[in-house]
Structures are given as structure tokens and as C-alpha cells.
């Protein structure tokens, strides 16, 4: 459970992630520069550039000094230099990150909302046909790999029906603005988002449904019914609200899965997010970029978890006191 996790834990987690990011390339056998930039890049470098890099990473200084230099660089937002884009990694990331955040953020909200509503309705009808159908659908769809589901959707809606764009996040050079820009973004977003939601809604639904089943057996549900609450009120206000708690807790973990899923889905739809970027970085062995992407993804997951914890405090009054 996430509750009672103090803020310090998050600081520690960030620190550990940063340290791993620092230490891993340096633990690799051979020249750290080789580990950081890769063989090809290194071969193509001029000696001056190499010199410059060694100084930049303080590779000629003791490890502790290197670490401090690394932290200082991070603090300045300096994640290194992308060899492929020939631009600072941070600037490259900033171009791609918003699309991924948009995609995964929306997917998380939709998955949670849809999963919770379906879970409540399904749990309340436990054992009846509607429940059975939803349950098997969730298990079936949850078994699809993201890219496979994405490809199917792309082929059907994009290629066969032609109602959805095949790639990108915007219609390029259309110079749209205002509402039409928003609609254009949504139009491009629909299929990748749909893919993610279809494949990733399962855990939210299952968790809500199962919690719902146990919650409906709780004594306070009987109290609610004995008060004369109508069925809907019992279902949502009493049982549903209570079943929400584990969902909020689990959403943090699910977000990590969503980001992983998004990396693949973006590739399928050539959506200009971190996934596409990672793919390109991997192809070109742009190590600083890869590291930057992974670091950003880890931080994003951590941030979302932290936000969810704030939400949890709001939905469960018992936590306030536990702190």
C-alpha cells in the first residue's frame, strides 16, 4: 500500500534513480566514455571533442567529484549532448515529452474512470451474465500485446476505413490554431489512446470488480440498505466509493505499465513521443539520449505516484490520522 509513505521516500527514490543513472555506465567494462557514447560515436569523434567530453564528465577526477559534477549538470538541466540530433538531450526531450504525457495521462484517467464504472456495475452483478461477459472480455483484451492491438486498430480504422490518420500527432504544416488545432490533436490521438485504454483498462476493472464483491459483503453495506438507500446509492456512494481506494493505490503501478505500453504504441502509430524517440535513439545508439529518456520516464512514474498519494489522502479520511 502506498499510504503512509513519507515524502522522504520519494526524495530517496529520486536519488537512487539518479545514482543508478550515474553509476551504471561507469560500471561497464572499459572506457566510461565508450559506455556513455558507444563505439561508433567515439570512433567518429575528433580528439578535441573527446578531450572536451572527458573534461565535461570530469572523467579525469575521482568518482565523488564526478558524481557532484553530474548532479550539478542535472541541476542545470544538462542531460548531455545528443549525438544524433546534435542538440542538448534536454531540448530534444522537451520536444517529445509533452506528447507522451498527453497520451499516457489521458489513458490513465480514461482507464481508471472506465475501469471503475465497469468494475462497480460488474461487481454488483456478480455471477450474472453481464458480469461474466465483461470479465471474459477484460481477460481476453488484457492478453493482447499493445503493439499488436495497435496494429490491428491501425489497419482497420486507418487503412481499411481510412477514418484515422496513419501517423503523427498533428497534420503537419497545416497552420491550424485554436479549436481546430485541438480537434486535430484529438483526431491524431484517438487511435493510440484507444489502443492503450483497450489493452490497459483490464487491471483497473478487475481490481474494482473484485474489491466491489468483497465490499458488498461488508457490514456497512447492510447498514446502508437498512437505511432505505436506493440501489444506485448503495452501489456508488457506499460500495463504489469504498472500492475506489485500492484503485487509487494501484494506479501508480499501472502508470508504469502504461508508459511501457505507450513506448510501443507510439512506434506503431509513429506518434512523436518518447517511444518513437527511444526507438530512434536505440537505432542510432544515441546513449545520452537513451539515458535521458529512461531517467525522464522513471521520474514521470515517480511524480504520478506522488500525486496519487495526495489524492489518496483526499479520498480516505483514515490516512490523515495515520500520518
Amino acid at each position: 500500500m502506498l499510504r503512509d509513505r513519507p515524502f522522504a521516500t520519494y526524495v530517496l527514490a529520486v536519488f537512487v534513480i539518479l545514482s543508478l543513472n550515474f553509476i551504471l555506465p561507469r560500471l561497464m567494462p572499459g572506457d566510461p566514455l565508450l559506455a556513455i557514447y558507444g563505439e561508433e560515436a567515439l570512433l567518429a569523434m575528433s580528439p578535441e571533442l573527446k578531450e572536451e567530453l572527458v573534461r565535461r564528465f570530469s572523467l579525469d577526477r575521482p568518482l565523488s567529484a564526478q558524481f557532484l559534477a553530474y548532479l550539478a549538470a542535472l541541476f542545470r538541466g544538462d542531460l548531455g549532448h545528443s549525438y544524433y540530433f546534435n542538440a542538448p538531450v534536454s531540448r530534444v526531450l522537451l520536444g517529445f515529452l509533452p506528447w507522451t504525457l498527453l497520451l499516457t495521462g489521458l489513458a490513465l484517467c480514461l482507464c481508471a474512470a472506465l475501469g471503475v464504472v465497469l468494475g462497480i456495475e460488474s461487481g454488483a452483478r456478480r455471477g450474472r451474465p453481464q458480469d461474466a461477459v465483461l470479465l471474459s472480455a477484460a481477460l481476453f483484451l488484457g492478453g493482447f500485446p499493445d503493439f499488436f492491438a495497435g496494429t490491428l486498430l491501425l489497419l482497420f480504422f486507418g487503412v481499411t476505413l481510412g477514418v484515422a490518420p496513419l501517423a503523427g500527432a498533428l497534420t503537419p504544416y497545416a497552420g491550424k490554431a485554436g479549436l481546430s488545432l485541438v480537434l486535430d490533436v484529438l483526431h491524431h490521438l484517438t487511435l493510440p489512446l484507444l489502443t492503450l485504454v483497450v489493452v490497459r483498462v483490464g487491471p483497473f476493472y478487475l481490481l474494482t470488480r473484485n474489491t466491489m464483491v468483497t465490499t458488498l459483503g461488508e457490514a456497512f453495506i447492510l447498514t446502508a440498505r437498512a437505511k432505505g438507500c436506493p440501489d444506485r446509492t448503495v452501489r456508488y456512494r457506499h460500495a463504489g466509493r469504498h472500492s475506489l481506494l485500492p484503485v487509487v493505490t494501484a494506479a501508480g503501478l499501472q502508470y508504469a505499465h502504461l508508459i511501457t505500453g505507450a513506448l510501443f504504441v507510439e512506434m506503431v502509430f509513429s506518434y512523436p513521443g518518447m517511444g518513437t524517440l527511444l526507438y530512434r535513439a536505440l537505432l542510432t545508439r544515441d546513449y545520452p539520449l537513451i539515458q535521458g529518456i529512461l531517467l525522464t520516464a522513471a521520474l514521470a512514474v515517480l511524480t504520478v505516484n506522488f500525486l496519487l498519494e495526495l489524492v489518496y489522502v483526499k479520498v480516505d479520511p483514515r490516512v490523515v490520522r495515520a500520518r
Partner: peptide
């Protein structure tokens, strides 16, 4: 009034 004082009220 149900038995089980501890769980008969909604915790939230």
C-alpha cells in the same frame, strides 16, 4: 441496528 459495531458504519 446491526451487530459488528466496528464495521457497521461507512469508514469514509
Amino acid at each position: 441496528v446491526f451487530q459488528n459495531v466496528e464495521t457497521a458504519l461507512h469508514p469514509l
